[in-house]
Design a protein around this nucleic acid. Structure first.
Lengths: 106, 106
DNA sequence: ATATGATACATTGAAATACAAGGTATGTCA
DNA sequence: TGACATACCTTGTATTTCAATGTATCATAT
C-alpha cells in the first residue's frame, strides 16, 4: 500500500467536488473548509499539484473566467475524470471497509 | 493534514490487533493478509518501524519467547497504548465521516 | 488615501509515510 | 539437499502533504 493505494483520497475529494459543478481552486478549499469544519483542511500546496496532475491525465479540463476584475481558473470534470472518480470511490470504499473490519475485531 | 492527520491509520491497525492479544510481527502480517484478503498488505518495511515507534512511545511493551526453536518477539498493548488506540480510532472515524460527507454530495 | 483582510493564483523545501528490495537465520518436508 | 515457510530487520526511494512564502487584485473601514 505504497502512497497511492492507501491515500490518494485527496484527489477523490477534488474529483467529487467537481462532479457537482465546475469550480476554481480557492472555491474548493473554502468549500471543504466550510463542509468539513475543522476535521481537516485542504491546503494550496496540496491542491494545486493535484489539479495539475489531474489535468495532465485528462481527468479535468480547465478554463479561465473573469469575475469582477478577478481571473478565476475553473476546472471541469471530463468523461475520463468521471471514470476516475468512480474508480477512486470504489477504492476508498474497499479501504474503509478493510479498516473497519479489523477494528470490529477488537 | 500533514502525514499524521490524514494517515497514521496503519498504526491504528497494529494497535487494534494487539488489543485482542499479544502478537509477534510476522503474525500481524499474516493475520491481516488473511483477514483483508488482497485489499492491502502490511509490509515488513512498514510494520517494524511502527512497532519501534510505538515501543519508544510506551504504547507497547515487548518480550521474547522461544517456540519450537524459533525466537518470537511478542508485543503487548500497554495502558498507554489502549488510550492511543481509542484516540486513533476516533480520529479514523472523524476522517472517514468527513470523506463520506463530501462523497454524499455528489 | 491607505491599511487590512479576503480573494485568487502558485512554488519551494522539508517532513511523514509506505514499500520494494535486500539481508540473516532457523525449521519443515519432500 | 533444496525449497519453502517462518521470523527477524534495514536501506533507499517514491509519494503525499504541508508550512512558508510570494504575487496581485478587490472590498472595506479608518
Amino acid at each position: 500500500m505504497r502512497g497511492k493505494q492507501s491515500l490518494a483520497h485527496t484527489s477523490l475529494l477534488v474529483l467529487s467536488l467537481l462532479s457537482r459543478q465546475d469550480m476554481y481552486g480557492y472555491q474548493m478549499i473554502s468549500t471543504l473548509e466550510q463542509k468539513l469544519d475543522r476535521t481537516f483542511a485542504l491546503k494550496e500546496g496540496t491542491l494545486y499539484p493535484i489539479l495539475r496532475e489531474l489535468e495532465s491525465q485528462g481527468a479535468v479540463s480547465c478554463y479561465e473566467q473573469e469575475v469582477s476584475g478577478r481571473v478565476r481558473k475553473y476546472y471541469h470534470l471530463t468523461r475520463k475524470g468521471k471514470r476516475l472518480l468512480a474508480e477512486e470511490r470504489e477504492q476508498w470504499d474497499r479501504y474503509a471497509r478493510a479498516i473497519n473490519t479489523v477494528l470490529e475485531l477488537s
